[in-house]
Design a binder for these strands. Structure first.
Length: 424
RNA sequence: GGAGAGGUGACCGAGUCGGCUGAAGGUGCUCGCCUGCUAAGCGAGUGGCGGCCACAAGCUGCUCCAGGGUUCGAAUCCCUGCCUCUCCGCCA
Protein backbone atom coordinates (compact mmCIF):
# COMPACT_ATOMS: atom_id res chain seq x y z
CA UNK A 1 0.00 0.00 0.00
CA UNK A 2 1.13 3.51 -0.71
CA UNK A 3 0.64 6.60 1.40
CA UNK A 4 -2.48 8.37 0.20
CA UNK A 5 -0.65 11.65 0.58
CA UNK A 6 2.03 10.38 -1.74
CA UNK A 7 -0.62 9.36 -4.26
CA UNK A 8 -2.30 12.76 -4.04
CA UNK A 9 0.95 14.56 -4.67
CA UNK A 10 2.35 12.17 -7.26
CA UNK A 11 -0.68 10.96 -9.13
CA UNK A 12 1.12 10.94 -12.47
CA UNK A 13 4.02 8.96 -11.14
CA UNK A 14 1.64 6.40 -9.65
CA UNK A 15 -0.31 6.13 -12.89
CA UNK A 16 2.91 5.71 -14.83
CA UNK A 17 3.98 2.95 -12.45
CA UNK A 18 0.70 1.11 -12.95
CA UNK A 19 1.07 1.46 -16.71
CA UNK A 20 4.56 0.01 -16.62
CA UNK A 21 3.33 -2.93 -14.59
CA UNK A 22 0.33 -3.40 -16.86
CA UNK A 23 -1.96 -3.12 -13.87
CA UNK A 24 -5.29 -1.39 -14.21
CA UNK A 25 -6.31 0.90 -11.42
CA UNK A 26 -8.42 4.04 -11.45
CA UNK A 27 -6.31 6.61 -9.66
CA UNK A 28 -8.65 9.45 -10.53
CA UNK A 29 -11.52 7.61 -8.95
CA UNK A 30 -9.40 7.01 -5.88
CA UNK A 31 -8.64 10.72 -5.59
CA UNK A 32 -12.30 11.59 -5.94
CA UNK A 33 -13.29 9.11 -3.28
CA UNK A 34 -10.50 10.40 -1.09
CA UNK A 35 -11.94 13.91 -1.36
CA UNK A 36 -15.41 12.72 -0.43
CA UNK A 37 -13.97 10.74 2.41
CA UNK A 38 -12.20 13.68 3.91
CA UNK A 39 -15.16 15.95 3.49
CA UNK A 40 -17.52 13.57 5.25
CA UNK A 41 -14.93 12.91 7.90
CA UNK A 42 -14.63 16.59 8.57
CA UNK A 43 -18.39 17.05 8.87
CA UNK A 44 -18.94 14.16 11.18
CA UNK A 45 -15.98 15.07 13.33
CA UNK A 46 -17.29 18.57 13.83
CA UNK A 47 -20.61 17.18 14.96
CA UNK A 48 -18.89 14.76 17.27
CA UNK A 49 -16.88 17.55 18.80
CA UNK A 50 -20.14 19.39 19.41
CA UNK A 51 -21.67 16.27 20.90
CA UNK A 52 -18.72 15.70 23.21
CA UNK A 53 -18.81 19.26 24.46
CA UNK A 54 -22.56 19.07 25.04
CA UNK A 55 -22.26 15.84 26.97
CA UNK A 56 -19.92 17.52 29.39
CA UNK A 57 -22.38 20.35 29.87
CA UNK A 58 -25.36 18.11 30.37
CA UNK A 59 -23.67 16.38 33.24
CA UNK A 60 -23.66 19.70 35.06
CA UNK A 61 -27.19 20.81 34.21
CA UNK A 62 -30.31 20.14 36.22
CA UNK A 63 -34.07 19.94 35.65
CA UNK A 64 -35.63 21.62 32.64
CA UNK A 65 -32.35 22.89 31.27
CA UNK A 66 -31.04 19.39 31.26
CA UNK A 67 -34.13 17.97 29.61
CA UNK A 68 -33.97 20.50 26.82
CA UNK A 69 -30.32 19.92 26.18
CA UNK A 70 -30.90 16.20 25.93
CA UNK A 71 -33.67 16.66 23.38
CA UNK A 72 -31.44 18.94 21.36
CA UNK A 73 -28.61 16.44 21.32
CA UNK A 74 -30.85 13.64 20.13
CA UNK A 75 -31.04 15.40 16.79
CA UNK A 76 -27.30 15.73 16.57
CA UNK A 77 -26.81 12.05 17.30
CA UNK A 78 -29.16 11.23 14.43
CA UNK A 79 -27.21 13.44 12.06
CA UNK A 80 -23.98 11.80 13.05
CA UNK A 81 -25.39 8.36 12.42
CA UNK A 82 -26.49 9.48 9.01
CA UNK A 83 -23.11 10.88 8.08
CA UNK A 84 -21.32 7.84 9.42
CA UNK A 85 -23.36 5.54 7.23
CA UNK A 86 -22.38 7.50 4.14
CA UNK A 87 -18.81 7.69 5.35
CA UNK A 88 -18.60 3.94 5.77
CA UNK A 89 -19.59 3.42 2.16
CA UNK A 90 -17.02 5.87 0.92
CA UNK A 91 -14.30 4.48 3.16
CA UNK A 92 -15.00 0.95 1.97
CA UNK A 93 -14.48 1.98 -1.61
CA UNK A 94 -11.43 4.00 -0.64
CA UNK A 95 -9.83 1.05 1.14
CA UNK A 96 -10.60 -1.34 -1.67
CA UNK A 97 -8.96 0.98 -4.18
CA UNK A 98 -5.97 1.62 -1.93
CA UNK A 99 -5.26 -2.09 -1.73
CA UNK A 100 -5.13 -2.23 -5.51
CA UNK A 101 -2.72 0.58 -6.22
CA UNK A 102 0.60 -0.91 -7.32
CA UNK A 103 3.98 0.13 -6.04
CA UNK A 104 5.68 2.16 -8.78
CA UNK A 105 8.72 0.20 -9.97
CA UNK A 106 12.29 1.43 -9.93
CA UNK A 107 13.33 3.44 -12.97
CA UNK A 108 15.82 0.81 -14.04
CA UNK A 109 13.09 -1.80 -14.31
CA UNK A 110 12.88 -2.58 -18.03
CA UNK A 111 9.70 -2.18 -20.01
CA UNK A 112 8.07 -5.42 -21.06
CA UNK A 113 4.99 -7.59 -21.15
CA UNK A 114 6.02 -10.85 -19.55
CA UNK A 115 8.97 -12.99 -18.54
CA UNK A 116 10.28 -13.06 -22.10
CA UNK A 117 11.18 -9.42 -21.66
CA UNK A 118 13.19 -9.92 -18.50
CA UNK A 119 16.75 -8.76 -18.91
CA UNK A 120 19.64 -11.06 -18.21
CA UNK A 121 22.19 -9.48 -15.93
CA UNK A 122 24.78 -12.17 -15.48
CA UNK A 123 25.47 -15.88 -15.76
CA UNK A 124 27.38 -18.34 -13.66
CA UNK A 125 28.51 -21.93 -13.87
CA UNK A 126 29.23 -24.08 -16.89
CA UNK A 127 26.49 -25.74 -18.90
CA UNK A 128 26.77 -29.52 -18.80
CA UNK A 129 27.70 -31.36 -21.99
CA UNK A 130 26.54 -34.89 -22.47
CA UNK A 131 28.07 -37.45 -24.81
CA UNK A 132 24.84 -39.39 -24.56
CA UNK A 133 21.15 -38.61 -24.82
CA UNK A 134 20.33 -37.00 -21.45
CA UNK A 135 17.15 -38.01 -19.63
CA UNK A 136 14.73 -35.58 -18.05
CA UNK A 137 14.14 -35.64 -14.31
CA UNK A 138 10.93 -37.61 -14.65
CA UNK A 139 12.72 -40.45 -16.41
CA UNK A 140 15.61 -40.24 -14.01
CA UNK A 141 13.27 -40.21 -11.05
CA UNK A 142 11.59 -43.35 -12.27
CA UNK A 143 14.82 -45.10 -13.10
CA UNK A 144 16.27 -44.32 -9.69
CA UNK A 145 12.90 -44.96 -8.05
CA UNK A 146 12.98 -41.67 -6.18
CA UNK A 147 10.05 -39.86 -7.81
CA UNK A 148 6.61 -41.37 -8.31
CA UNK A 149 4.31 -39.03 -10.14
CA UNK A 150 1.54 -41.43 -11.25
CA UNK A 151 0.80 -42.50 -7.71
CA UNK A 152 0.97 -38.92 -6.49
CA UNK A 153 -1.65 -38.04 -9.09
CA UNK A 154 -3.70 -41.07 -8.10
CA UNK A 155 -3.89 -39.85 -4.52
CA UNK A 156 -4.05 -36.10 -4.90
CA UNK A 157 -4.74 -35.18 -8.49
CA UNK A 158 -2.69 -33.41 -11.11
CA UNK A 159 0.49 -31.62 -10.13
CA UNK A 160 1.00 -34.01 -7.25
CA UNK A 161 3.95 -36.28 -6.72
CA UNK A 162 5.67 -38.53 -4.27
CA UNK A 163 9.32 -38.41 -3.38
CA UNK A 164 10.90 -41.56 -2.05
CA UNK A 165 14.16 -43.06 -0.94
CA UNK A 166 17.16 -40.93 -1.93
CA UNK A 167 14.71 -38.43 -3.37
CA UNK A 168 13.57 -37.64 0.15
CA UNK A 169 17.13 -37.57 1.42
CA UNK A 170 18.13 -35.26 -1.38
CA UNK A 171 15.27 -32.87 -0.67
CA UNK A 172 16.13 -32.70 3.01
CA UNK A 173 19.82 -32.39 2.22
CA UNK A 174 19.06 -29.35 0.13
CA UNK A 175 16.93 -27.88 2.90
CA UNK A 176 19.45 -28.66 5.61
CA UNK A 177 22.31 -27.25 3.63
CA UNK A 178 20.25 -24.12 3.07
CA UNK A 179 19.27 -23.79 6.71
CA UNK A 180 22.79 -24.27 7.93
CA UNK A 181 24.05 -21.66 5.49
CA UNK A 182 21.34 -19.21 6.49
CA UNK A 183 22.34 -19.49 10.11
CA UNK A 184 25.97 -18.95 9.19
CA UNK A 185 24.91 -15.80 7.35
CA UNK A 186 23.24 -14.51 10.47
CA UNK A 187 19.62 -15.27 9.66
CA UNK A 188 17.29 -16.43 12.40
CA UNK A 189 15.51 -19.56 11.24
CA UNK A 190 11.81 -19.82 11.91
CA UNK A 191 9.15 -22.47 11.66
CA UNK A 192 5.91 -20.60 11.17
CA UNK A 193 2.20 -21.34 10.81
CA UNK A 194 1.32 -22.77 7.43
CA UNK A 195 -2.27 -21.69 7.88
CA UNK A 196 -2.70 -17.99 8.36
CA UNK A 197 -5.42 -15.39 8.68
CA UNK A 198 -6.26 -12.99 5.92
CA UNK A 199 -4.40 -10.16 7.62
CA UNK A 200 -1.15 -11.90 6.73
CA UNK A 201 -2.26 -12.55 3.16
CA UNK A 202 -3.44 -8.98 2.73
CA UNK A 203 -0.48 -7.61 4.62
CA UNK A 204 2.03 -9.23 2.32
CA UNK A 205 -0.09 -8.15 -0.66
CA UNK A 206 -1.12 -11.58 -1.89
CA UNK A 207 -4.70 -10.49 -1.28
CA UNK A 208 -6.64 -8.98 -2.83
CA UNK A 209 -5.83 -10.41 -6.21
CA UNK A 210 -4.24 -13.72 -5.35
CA UNK A 211 -7.25 -15.45 -3.79
CA UNK A 212 -7.46 -17.92 -6.64
CA UNK A 213 -3.93 -19.03 -5.98
CA UNK A 214 -4.41 -19.92 -2.32
CA UNK A 215 -6.00 -22.94 -0.73
CA UNK A 216 -8.66 -21.91 1.74
CA UNK A 217 -9.90 -23.52 4.91
CA UNK A 218 -13.23 -21.79 4.86
CA UNK A 219 -14.57 -23.23 8.06
CA UNK A 220 -11.79 -21.60 9.98
CA UNK A 221 -11.18 -18.61 7.73
CA UNK A 222 -7.57 -19.61 7.26
CA UNK A 223 -5.37 -19.80 4.21
CA UNK A 224 -2.55 -22.18 3.37
CA UNK A 225 0.59 -20.21 2.74
CA UNK A 226 2.18 -20.23 -0.67
CA UNK A 227 5.46 -19.20 0.88
CA UNK A 228 6.96 -18.62 4.32
CA UNK A 229 7.32 -15.00 3.26
CA UNK A 230 3.73 -14.53 4.38
CA UNK A 231 4.02 -15.50 8.06
CA UNK A 232 7.63 -14.41 8.45
CA UNK A 233 7.11 -10.92 7.04
CA UNK A 234 3.95 -10.69 9.13
CA UNK A 235 5.82 -11.77 12.24
CA UNK A 236 5.97 -8.22 13.61
CA UNK A 237 2.48 -7.33 12.46
CA UNK A 238 1.20 -4.19 14.18
CA UNK A 239 4.41 -3.65 16.10
CA UNK A 240 6.72 -0.72 16.54
CA UNK A 241 10.31 -1.89 16.47
CA UNK A 242 13.35 -0.07 17.68
CA UNK A 243 15.64 1.20 14.94
CA UNK A 244 18.66 -0.16 16.77
CA UNK A 245 17.30 -3.68 16.31
CA UNK A 246 17.18 -3.28 12.53
CA UNK A 247 17.85 -4.77 10.11
CA UNK A 248 16.24 -8.08 11.01
CA UNK A 249 17.33 -11.16 9.13
CA UNK A 250 14.86 -14.00 9.27
CA UNK A 251 14.53 -17.17 7.29
CA UNK A 252 11.43 -19.27 7.22
CA UNK A 253 11.31 -22.92 6.36
CA UNK A 254 7.95 -24.28 5.35
CA UNK A 255 5.95 -26.25 2.89
CA UNK A 256 4.26 -24.07 0.28
CA UNK A 257 0.87 -24.64 -1.26
CA UNK A 258 -0.35 -23.19 -4.52
CA UNK A 259 -3.48 -23.94 -6.44
CA UNK A 260 -1.88 -23.04 -9.76
CA UNK A 261 -5.28 -21.97 -11.01
CA UNK A 262 -5.20 -20.73 -14.55
CA UNK A 263 -2.02 -22.61 -15.44
CA UNK A 264 -3.72 -25.54 -17.12
CA UNK A 265 -1.52 -26.91 -19.80
CA UNK A 266 1.50 -24.97 -18.61
CA UNK A 267 4.53 -26.82 -17.30
CA UNK A 268 2.49 -29.95 -16.90
CA UNK A 269 5.44 -32.27 -16.95
CA UNK A 270 7.33 -33.30 -13.88
CA UNK A 271 8.15 -31.37 -10.75
CA UNK A 272 8.38 -27.89 -12.19
CA UNK A 273 4.92 -26.59 -11.34
CA UNK A 274 3.29 -28.46 -8.49
CA UNK A 275 0.80 -27.79 -5.71
CA UNK A 276 3.10 -28.47 -2.81
CA UNK A 277 6.78 -27.89 -2.26
CA UNK A 278 9.21 -26.84 0.42
CA UNK A 279 11.19 -23.70 0.71
CA UNK A 280 13.70 -21.85 2.79
CA UNK A 281 12.94 -18.18 2.43
CA UNK A 282 15.03 -15.15 3.32
CA UNK A 283 13.19 -12.17 4.77
CA UNK A 284 14.70 -8.86 5.75
CA UNK A 285 13.06 -6.03 7.64
CA UNK A 286 15.11 -2.86 7.59
CA UNK A 287 14.88 0.89 8.10
CA UNK A 288 13.08 3.02 5.55
CA UNK A 289 16.13 3.96 3.54
CA UNK A 290 16.22 3.24 -0.20
CA UNK A 291 19.97 2.81 0.01
CA UNK A 292 19.73 0.15 2.68
CA UNK A 293 16.91 -1.55 0.80
CA UNK A 294 19.00 -1.63 -2.37
CA UNK A 295 21.99 -3.05 -0.50
CA UNK A 296 19.90 -5.70 1.17
CA UNK A 297 18.34 -6.59 -2.13
CA UNK A 298 21.75 -7.29 -3.60
CA UNK A 299 22.68 -9.13 -0.43
CA UNK A 300 19.84 -11.63 -0.51
CA UNK A 301 20.24 -12.06 -4.23
CA UNK A 302 23.93 -12.82 -3.78
CA UNK A 303 23.16 -15.25 -0.99
CA UNK A 304 21.01 -17.34 -3.27
CA UNK A 305 23.48 -17.03 -6.07
CA UNK A 306 26.14 -18.42 -3.77
CA UNK A 307 23.90 -21.29 -2.83
CA UNK A 308 23.36 -22.17 -6.45
CA UNK A 309 27.11 -21.98 -7.00
CA UNK A 310 27.69 -24.27 -4.03
CA UNK A 311 25.32 -26.74 -5.62
CA UNK A 312 27.39 -26.41 -8.80
CA UNK A 313 24.43 -25.45 -10.92
CA UNK A 314 24.66 -23.25 -14.01
CA UNK A 315 22.44 -20.23 -13.55
CA UNK A 316 21.66 -16.74 -14.63
CA UNK A 317 20.21 -13.71 -12.94
CA UNK A 318 17.54 -11.67 -14.69
CA UNK A 319 16.06 -8.29 -13.90
CA UNK A 320 12.33 -8.73 -14.08
CA UNK A 321 10.51 -6.39 -16.46
CA UNK A 322 7.53 -4.20 -15.61
CA UNK A 323 4.86 -6.49 -16.98
CA UNK A 324 6.19 -9.49 -15.10
CA UNK A 325 6.38 -7.60 -11.82
CA UNK A 326 3.71 -8.04 -9.19
CA UNK A 327 1.70 -5.31 -7.54
CA UNK A 328 3.95 -4.84 -4.49
CA UNK A 329 7.51 -4.98 -5.81
CA UNK A 330 9.77 -2.06 -6.56
CA UNK A 331 12.19 -4.37 -8.26
CA UNK A 332 12.73 -8.06 -8.63
CA UNK A 333 15.51 -10.37 -9.68
CA UNK A 334 14.90 -13.93 -10.64
CA UNK A 335 17.62 -16.52 -10.48
CA UNK A 336 17.15 -19.26 -13.00
CA UNK A 337 18.97 -22.57 -12.97
CA UNK A 338 19.81 -24.59 -16.02
CA UNK A 339 17.34 -27.36 -16.71
CA UNK A 340 18.54 -29.54 -19.57
CA UNK A 341 15.10 -31.00 -20.26
CA UNK A 342 13.75 -27.52 -20.87
CA UNK A 343 16.81 -26.62 -22.88
CA UNK A 344 16.71 -23.45 -20.91
CA UNK A 345 17.05 -21.80 -17.56
CA UNK A 346 14.06 -22.22 -15.26
CA UNK A 347 13.14 -19.88 -12.44
CA UNK A 348 14.24 -21.17 -9.06
CA UNK A 349 14.49 -17.96 -7.06
CA UNK A 350 12.65 -14.72 -6.85
CA UNK A 351 14.23 -11.79 -5.05
CA UNK A 352 11.99 -8.88 -4.24
CA UNK A 353 12.30 -5.39 -2.86
CA UNK A 354 9.16 -3.69 -1.57
CA UNK A 355 10.17 -0.55 0.29
CA UNK A 356 7.33 0.09 2.77
CA UNK A 357 4.57 -1.34 0.60
CA UNK A 358 4.03 -4.46 2.69
CA UNK A 359 4.97 -2.74 5.95
CA UNK A 360 2.14 -0.23 5.59
CA UNK A 361 -0.37 -3.01 5.22
CA UNK A 362 1.19 -4.89 8.08
CA UNK A 363 1.46 -1.84 10.34
CA UNK A 364 5.07 -2.82 10.67
CA UNK A 365 6.90 0.23 12.01
CA UNK A 366 9.96 1.31 13.88
CA UNK A 367 10.96 4.28 15.96
CA UNK A 368 13.91 6.07 14.42
CA UNK A 369 16.72 7.77 16.31
CA UNK A 370 14.71 10.98 16.48
CA UNK A 371 11.73 9.22 17.98
CA UNK A 372 9.58 9.33 14.87
CA UNK A 373 7.51 6.32 13.95
CA UNK A 374 8.17 5.10 10.42
CA UNK A 375 7.18 2.15 8.30
CA UNK A 376 9.91 -0.43 7.78
CA UNK A 377 11.14 -1.69 4.47
CA UNK A 378 10.84 -5.37 3.67
CA UNK A 379 12.58 -7.71 1.23
CA UNK A 380 12.56 -11.37 0.54
CA UNK A 381 14.13 -13.98 -1.64
CA UNK A 382 13.94 -17.69 -2.05
CA UNK A 383 16.99 -19.28 -0.55
CA UNK A 384 16.11 -22.64 -1.94
CA UNK A 385 12.90 -24.24 -3.18
CA UNK A 386 12.59 -27.93 -3.65
CA UNK A 387 11.80 -30.12 -5.49
CA UNK A 388 12.06 -27.61 -8.31
CA UNK A 389 15.77 -27.25 -7.79
CA UNK A 390 16.07 -31.04 -7.86
CA UNK A 391 15.23 -30.82 -11.55
CA UNK A 392 18.53 -29.06 -12.16
CA UNK A 393 20.46 -31.18 -9.73
CA UNK A 394 19.25 -34.44 -11.20
CA UNK A 395 19.39 -33.46 -14.83
CA UNK A 396 22.72 -31.68 -14.74
CA UNK A 397 24.49 -34.39 -12.78
CA UNK A 398 23.22 -37.44 -14.58
CA UNK A 399 25.51 -40.02 -16.11
CA UNK A 400 25.06 -42.27 -19.08
CA UNK A 401 23.61 -45.16 -17.03
CA UNK A 402 21.10 -42.85 -15.40
CA UNK A 403 22.90 -42.59 -12.11
CA UNK A 404 23.16 -39.13 -10.60
CA UNK A 405 26.18 -37.69 -8.86
CA UNK A 406 25.32 -35.76 -5.71
CA UNK A 407 26.92 -32.33 -5.43
CA UNK A 408 29.72 -32.35 -2.91
CA UNK A 409 28.04 -29.81 -0.62
CA UNK A 410 25.01 -32.03 -0.05
CA UNK A 411 26.69 -35.32 0.68
CA UNK A 412 27.20 -34.82 4.36
CA UNK A 413 23.46 -34.26 4.73
CA UNK A 414 22.70 -37.53 2.96
CA UNK A 415 24.75 -39.86 5.03
CA UNK A 416 27.65 -39.62 2.66
CA UNK A 417 25.84 -40.85 -0.45
CA UNK A 418 27.81 -39.74 -3.51
CA UNK A 419 25.78 -41.27 -6.29
CA UNK A 420 22.18 -42.34 -6.64
CA UNK A 421 22.12 -45.56 -8.65
CA UNK A 422 19.34 -46.89 -10.88
CA UNK A 423 17.16 -49.46 -9.12
CA UNK A 424 16.09 -51.33 -12.22
C1' G B 1 -15.87 -31.39 23.58
C1' G B 2 -17.95 -30.06 29.08
C1' A B 3 -17.50 -26.40 33.43
C1' G B 4 -15.55 -21.86 35.16
C1' A B 5 -12.42 -17.09 34.89
C1' G B 6 -10.71 -13.20 32.09
C1' G B 7 -9.19 -9.73 27.96
C1' U B 8 -7.30 -1.84 30.12
C1' G B 9 -1.45 2.19 27.72
C1' A B 10 5.81 -0.52 26.19
C1' C B 11 4.89 -3.78 30.64
C1' C B 12 2.40 -4.70 35.46
C1' G B 13 -2.02 -3.13 37.44
C1' A B 14 -6.54 0.10 39.49
C1' G B 15 -11.17 1.37 37.71
C1' U B 16 -18.17 -1.82 36.36
C1' C B 17 -25.47 0.51 40.53
C1' G B 18 -22.62 5.06 32.94
C1' G B 19 -20.54 11.37 33.01
C1' C B 20 -15.29 15.04 36.68
C1' U B 21 -10.65 8.47 33.71
C1' G B 22 -7.16 8.66 27.69
C1' A B 23 -7.57 6.32 31.77
C1' A B 24 -4.99 6.20 39.38
C1' G B 25 -0.50 3.71 41.01
C1' G B 26 3.93 1.14 39.81
C1' U B 27 7.77 -0.48 36.32
C1' G B 28 10.29 0.72 32.02
C1' C B 29 12.04 4.59 28.82
C1' U B 30 13.81 9.97 27.77
C1' C B 31 15.84 14.61 29.50
C1' G B 32 17.85 17.45 33.62
C1' C B 33 19.91 17.48 38.74
C1' C B 34 22.62 14.96 42.39
C1' U B 35 26.57 11.37 42.98
C1' G B 36 34.56 8.55 43.99
C1' C B 37 32.31 4.18 40.62
C1' U B 38 27.89 1.20 40.82
C1' A B 39 23.31 1.29 43.21
C1' A B 40 19.98 4.50 45.20
C1' G B 41 17.77 9.55 45.16
C1' C B 42 15.29 14.29 43.22
C1' G B 43 12.55 16.99 39.22
C1' A B 44 10.13 16.96 34.48
C1' G B 45 8.42 14.28 30.39
C1' U B 46 6.59 9.71 28.07
C1' G B 47 0.70 5.81 23.57
C1' G B 48 -1.11 4.76 18.63
C1' C B 49 -4.11 6.03 14.26
C1' G B 50 -6.66 9.88 11.48
C1' G B 51 -8.68 15.06 9.91
C1' C B 52 -7.71 20.56 9.20
C1' C B 53 -2.48 22.16 8.40
C1' A B 54 3.68 22.76 6.22
C1' C B 55 4.38 15.03 7.99
C1' A B 56 5.45 22.54 12.80
C1' A B 57 2.39 24.72 16.44
C1' G B 58 -2.51 24.56 17.49
C1' C B 59 -7.50 22.66 17.19
C1' U B 60 -10.11 18.18 16.70
C1' G B 61 -11.96 12.84 15.95
C1' C B 62 -11.06 7.70 16.98
C1' U B 63 -8.62 4.25 20.37
C1' C B 64 -9.63 0.40 27.35
C1' C B 65 -9.75 -7.54 22.31
C1' A B 66 -13.19 -7.08 17.68
C1' G B 67 -18.09 -5.99 15.66
C1' G B 68 -22.99 -4.46 16.76
C1' G B 69 -26.76 -2.32 20.37
C1' U B 70 -28.92 0.82 24.56
C1' U B 71 -28.05 6.20 25.99
C1' C B 72 -27.76 13.23 25.43
C1' G B 73 -23.31 10.49 27.20
C1' A B 74 -20.03 3.71 27.94
C1' A B 75 -13.57 1.13 29.63
C1' U B 76 -18.01 0.82 32.65
C1' C B 77 -24.87 -1.85 30.69
C1' C B 78 -26.72 -5.63 26.61
C1' C B 79 -25.76 -9.05 22.26
C1' U B 80 -22.34 -11.65 18.93
C1' G B 81 -17.50 -13.20 17.72
C1' C B 82 -12.26 -13.94 18.66
C1' C B 83 -8.42 -14.97 21.99
C1' U B 84 -6.14 -16.36 26.78
C1' C B 85 -6.13 -19.02 31.47
C1' U B 86 -7.88 -23.00 35.10
C1' C B 87 -10.34 -27.81 35.91
C1' C B 88 -12.43 -32.29 33.47
C1' G B 89 -12.61 -35.38 29.06
C1' C B 90 -10.08 -36.79 24.49
C1' C B 91 -5.54 -37.06 21.96
C1' A B 92 -0.47 -36.46 18.53
Amino acid sequence: MLDIRFIRENADLVKEGARKKHIEVDIDRLLTVDDQRRKLLHESENLKAEKNAASQEIAKLKGDEKGQAIVRMKGVTEKIKDLEARLTEVVDEFNALMLRVPNPPDEEVPEGDDDRDNVEIRRGGILPEFDFEPRDHVELGELLDIIDIPRGVKLAGSRSYILKSEGVLLEYAVLMYALETMVKLGFTPMIVPHLVKDIAMIGTAYFPGGEEQAYTCERDSLYLIGTAEVPVTSYHYDEILDEKDLPLHYCGISPCYRREAGTYGKDTKGLYRIHQFQKVEQVIVCAADPKISAEKHEFITNNSENLVKALELPYRVVLVCGGDLGQPQKRKYDIECWMPSRGNYGETHSSSKFYDFQARRLKLRYRDSEGNVQFCHTLNNTFVATPRILISILECNQQKDGSVVIPEALRKFMGGIEVIEPKK
